[in-house]
Write a protein that binds this DNA or RNA. Structure first.
Length: 210
DNA sequence: ACATTAAGTGATT
DNA sequence: AATCACTTAATGT
């Protein structure tokens, strides 16, 4: 038995389902910064995250991207669920934020299990609901929050998925994720530092106000 | 010592 | 909030 599967999912899935997952799913260990799914890719498997975290990015025609949200242990990708309704392609890009362990389940199986296992069905519906919530949050954040609040939310989310309040990144990378300019990020970070919410160093940011 | 990359800042739109 | 232009600081070779 894959230890992580046992540890994180045994309480919500019946033994028979766990066994099926184990027999069918492909176990993968993925390093940080790896694109596991890109825009336009045909979705053949759904990922079940055992550990680590993944950054979900949306991109426009011009190639400008924007981080929508992070997914972590116990989550799955909502995109795959939608895609099971038909032969669809991914609308998002998923990049590993930290080294990640996951199980790849063929979409046909995930469909079959929807009918076969009640626990699976509620798991899928539940995570779909959760993703929908996060998506709405992302919309709110873009539409209603000012840049400084978006930035702080981004840092907080990043600290949560990394389980570390010391964030290793550059202002440039943050600017890219939030789709703004480096200068703006530097200024706002400086402001947050003056408010004693963070501490700035070269290549890393420490969150103080959690 | 020098080049490169990251970060800070004033001024302008 | 974005962009420009420039400075300063840290880090690599």
């Amino acid at each position: 038995m894959i230890e992580e599967l046992e540890r994180y999912y045994s309480y919500q899935f019946e033994d028979e389902l766990l066994k099926e997952i184990q027999d069918i799913a492909v176990y993968r260990v993925i390093p940080e910064g790896f694109t596991i799914m890109d825009i336009g890719d045909t979705i053949t498997h759904m990922p079940l995250i055992l550990s680590g975290a993944i950054k979900v990015i949306r991109e426009d025609e011009k190639g400008d991207d924007l981080v929508l949200y992070f997914v972590e242990q116990g989550d799955t990708c909502a995109m795959t669920i939608t895609c099971c309704m038909g032969e669809a392609k991914s609308e998002i890009r998923a990049i590993t934020e930290t080294p990640t362990k996951l199980l790849m389940i063929p979409v046909q199986k995930m469909q079959a299990w929807m009918h076969k296992y009640k626990t699976w069905q509620s798991f899928i519906l539940q995570s779909y609901h959760e993703r929908m919530r996060e998506l709405l949050e992302a919309i709110d954040s873009i539409a209603f929050l000012r840049m400084d609040e978006r930035l702080f939310k981004y840092l907080r989310d990043k600290a949560i998925v990394n389980r570390n309040d010391l964030i290793n990144t550059t202002h440039q990378e943050i600017a890219h994720d939030l789709h703004t300019s480096r200068v703006v990020v530097s200024r706002l970070l400086k402001k947050l530092e003056q408010e004693n919410k963070i501490r700035l160093q070269r290549n890393n940011i420490k969150l103080l106000d959690l």
